[in-house]
Design a protein around this nucleic acid. Structure first.
Lengths: 340, 340
DNA sequence: GCTCCTTATGTAAGCGCTTACATTCTGGGC
DNA sequence: GCCCAGAATGTAAGCGCTTACATAAGGAGC
């Protein structure tokens, strides 16, 4: 019995006579033969492996995306190589090279670094193999790279529209010190004000040193607490993520403000934190599952070579409306100490 | 210039004359040559890849473990293949085969299925390549398999000790309907009572249908709310995870009980939920980072062939003491309507 | 029974590397 | 100038597969 026959049994069973097939299968089963994918990949030039790059593994946002990606990949017979870049453009590059070296059939980069986009690195990689970028950067969205564009500007406008509808003219903006995701949201927030000829008041922007870790909760708590004491908080506040939104709620509650009667709070990301407390947070839902599903879909489509179909997708965030935001009417007078 | 020389430049630079080395490196750089790890792995019999198996990706518990594992693997020059089993023993097996086929140099299985342990599958796999199991199952801990044993029984005893010290004689037990992690905690809880000749009262055990998803919060809320109304809640309650603990806190607060004055609550897992609300939860810390670090350490040690050193580790959970549990004295009279 | 076509199996090349072994350089000692 | 050890490089085999091509084995048709 030649190795070729065995190979055929495993890959094209219909090419071999049923009885021979049985015989081979029997031996294979008895000896617990495990094919060597490395050798197979060397011949077939595909590894049935996809590389996925995220910024941090212990971040529910990325994990929700990754979970659905992994599920889709499994269904399509692929395995997932996962790595975290810690937001380092250098590590991002190194990992992409590593994926390439392992002959990953495709690569998904979630929240890719600006640097590697602007110097053309992504464009070059994108030409070599199926490649999908998940991001919120309008600059990238204009490029020809396969991508899932998360329209955060739209998300922000939906928040502002909603609050405006509730009568809130001024909305404080709570963000972490640095991070692209904070910048892009603040830009949309400022744009909204500018469009309505409202001064883009810097005093409305509250900043905490670290907006992404657990510490963001107490930090936001402190920042908002101070703003309340100093009477410079308007009737509503938007927080760039649910961590900070929780901190804001805690501060307000401690200060004796009721939510949403005295202060409206809107969070972002719609994580478990939004529904964990007594007051359920109204929060922007980035549709993580859709993001994951779309990136997997785009990659798989590119992989199957069906050059038909879109090479990119756009995700529209939605506002998950809950209890933490309400009409502005009563609020103004309370928060500002009845000066209205 | 022969391929052998190139190979040497890349793997044993000192074997080749500096100037040749330079020449090779120059060409390599110019042509953006990316070595083929598949071919390399075929020769060297190692893929520099580790397979990691968890139950669910979008679960902060597993992700915290995975994050540190990935970091350690990177430092040691390995990449991580990650897959989720959805708690299916069959998928678990299939993925392990898949890892084997891809010639993963080692495998880590987190919260492995009972089934694949008891039928000897893990033992067999463990013999083939470095293999580490992370679990809380005393049965496995007695086996010779490389492992990180998380002593949940000890964690429970620390909770009970702590509450006993605060004067709580009876502690309600809040769990999800099914799951090994719930069972093992309940067993330790019952054991504690039995040791003190206290009846293992079934009415002290509250069950919610789904203890692990987001729904656990409102479900726990409802269950605890009912128990409060029916006056069958003792002065303290332990929840098998922070989700349910949050639900308990919400229910108690709504019912007008103060925490911890009127009711003591202890959670489990010490996740972000524990510190997200106004009342900070006392919660069992399973030392996720230690678990991840230990599993990576054990695997890497096995990989480097240093047969010295332990083949297993034991993790001792600790109680992260915060504000949600306090002395029982006042509580008894309030919760039970002053019948004491 | 012979040809011819189809179907089933075997043969061997080659995927891109590493590495044992063979060969060629190089230069110090005489 | 010659010898020889050691360093530098080349040669070629082989890792475990897949697959084009060659060969063998069945029938069907006459």
């Amino acid at each position: 019995m030649s190795t070729a026959t065995v190979s055929r049994v495993l890959n094209n069973p219909n090419l071999v006579k049923p009885e021979t097939r049985e015989r081979v299968l029997a031996v294979v089963g008895r000896h617990e033969y495990v094919p060597n994918s490395l050798a197979r990949g060397l011949m077939t030039k595909q590894s049935k492996t996809i590389g996925v790059l995220i910024i941090s593994i212990s971040n529910s946002y990325y994990m929700e995306i990754t979970e659905i990606i992994q599920r889709r990949l499994r269904e399509a017979g692929f395995m997932m190589l996962l790595a975290a870049t810690d937001d380092s453009a250098d590590l991002e590059r190194r990992y992409i090279r590593e994926f390439a070296s392992r002959r990953a059939d495709g690569i998904i980069v979630i929240d890719a670094s600006d640097e590697n986009f602007s110097d053309g690195f992504f464009a070059k990689e994108s030409a070599k193999r199926p490649f999908v970028l998940v991001h919120s950067n309008p600059a990238i969205s204009a490029s020809g790279i396969g991508q899932v564009f998360v329209d955060q500007r739209l998300g922000m406008r939906r928040v502002m529209e909603y609050l405006e509808g509730l009568g809130h003219r001024d909305v404080a903006f709570l963000r972490g010190e640095k991070g692209f995701s904070f910048d892009i949201k603040e830009a949309a927030w400022a744009e909204w004000r500018a469009e309505r000829s409202r001064e883009v008041r810097p005093d409305l922007v509250l900043r905490v040193a670290d907006g992404n870790s657990e510490d963001a909760i107490p930090l936001a708590d402190a920042a908002v607490g101070a703003a309340i004491r100093e009477g410079r908080l308007p009737s509503a506040i938007f927080a760039c993520n649910d961590l900070m939104a929780r901190g804001a709620v805690n501060a307000a509650t401690r200060a004796g403000l009721r939510i949403p009667e005295d202060l409206s709070v809107v969070g972002h990301d719609n994580t478990i934190l939004a529904v964990s407390g007594r007051v359920q947070l109204t929060s922007v839902d980035l549709k993580m599952r859709d993001i994951g599903a779309e990136s997997a879909r785009l990659l798989l489509a590119a992989l199957s070579g069906s050059s038909a179909g879109r090479r990119s997708a756009r995700i529209e965030p939605e506002l998950a409306v809950r209890d933490s935001a309400g009409p502005a009417a009563a609020a103004d007078s309370r928060v500002r100490g009845g000066s209205a």
